[in-house]
């Protein structure tokens, strides 16, 4: 459904969507975004200083109720990368407000980063543009099976508690990386449709996969 194209510095796109990655330091936020935008892996760990962002042009296709291919739009993604260290906390939270969707990341090989997911959820509810923003929970470093500390069942229970989707990704192998971002983009686009066409309900039940991701969206309030 999504195809990537080279990043262009012109205004030839239909939507500008701003997403933000947050989580503890060292969980792989920068590496994850680098894998998504450039499809490359940098094993070296370089601490992000404060704030950074990457861009990517993708093609988004809406699902029509009759099953045929809907309209396609060019979406320009601005992917904000935040520093997970405490000393940059007040700087990075200032950027939460302008993000339309969030990638909440933790490290599957670090139990502490998983426990801190609750703290990051509190930060989101306090600093985001509304109290229930679109969030996707991402457990990174899934390729390190021998060092795994967080079981998939635990993470799914936490995600179900918050009503958000959960993906286990690997920036090293690129597994599930695209799917996580695509799911978040889907949630944001659906919320946009609901905001503009508020009188009519946007219940897209024909597609099975979209029904799964639409169910949490229906539980949330409209941003308008």
């Amino acid at each position: 459904m999504f195809s990537s194209s080279s990043t262009m510095t012109d205004g030839d796109y239909d939507y500008l969507i701003k997403l933000l990655a947050l989580g503890d330091s060292g969980v792989g936020k920068t590496t994850f975004l680098y894998r998504y935008t450039d499809n490359k892996f940098n094993p070296k760990f370089i601490t992000t200083v404060g704030i950074d962002f990457r861009e990517k042009r993708v093609v988004y296709t809406t699902n029509s109720p009759n099953g045929t291919t809907g309209k396609t739009f060019k979406v320009h993604l601005q992917l904000w990368d935040t520093a997970g260290q405490e000393r940059f906390r007040s700087l990075t939270t200032a950027f939460f407000r302008d993000a339309m969707g969030f990638l909440l990341m933790f490290d599957l090989t670090s139990q502490q980063s998983f426990l801190n997911v609750r703290n990051w959820m509190s930060q989101l509810q306090a600093n985001a543009y509304c109290e229930n923003p679109d969030i996707v929970l991402v457990g990174n470093k899934a390729d390190l099976a021998d060092q795994r500390e967080v079981q998939e069942k635990q993470a799914k229970e936490l995600a179900d508690k918050y009503g958000i989707p959960y993906f286990e990704t690997s920036a090293a192998t690129g597994s599930e990386v695209d799917k996580a971002v695509v799911t978040l983009l889907d949630l944001v686009m659906k919320r946009m449709e609901q905001c503009v066409e508020k009188p009519s309900a946007d219940a897209n039940t024909s597609d099975g996969s979209s029904k799964l991701s639409a169910a949490p969206a229906q539980q949330k309030k409209c941003a308008c």
Binding site: P65, E197, S200, A201, D202, A203
Partner: peptide, 11 residues
């Protein structure tokens, strides 16, 4: 003509 997924009536 816009057809919402959940509604059969066209708008």
């Amino acid at each position: 003509e816009t057809t919402a997924g959940g509604q059969k009536r066209t708008q």
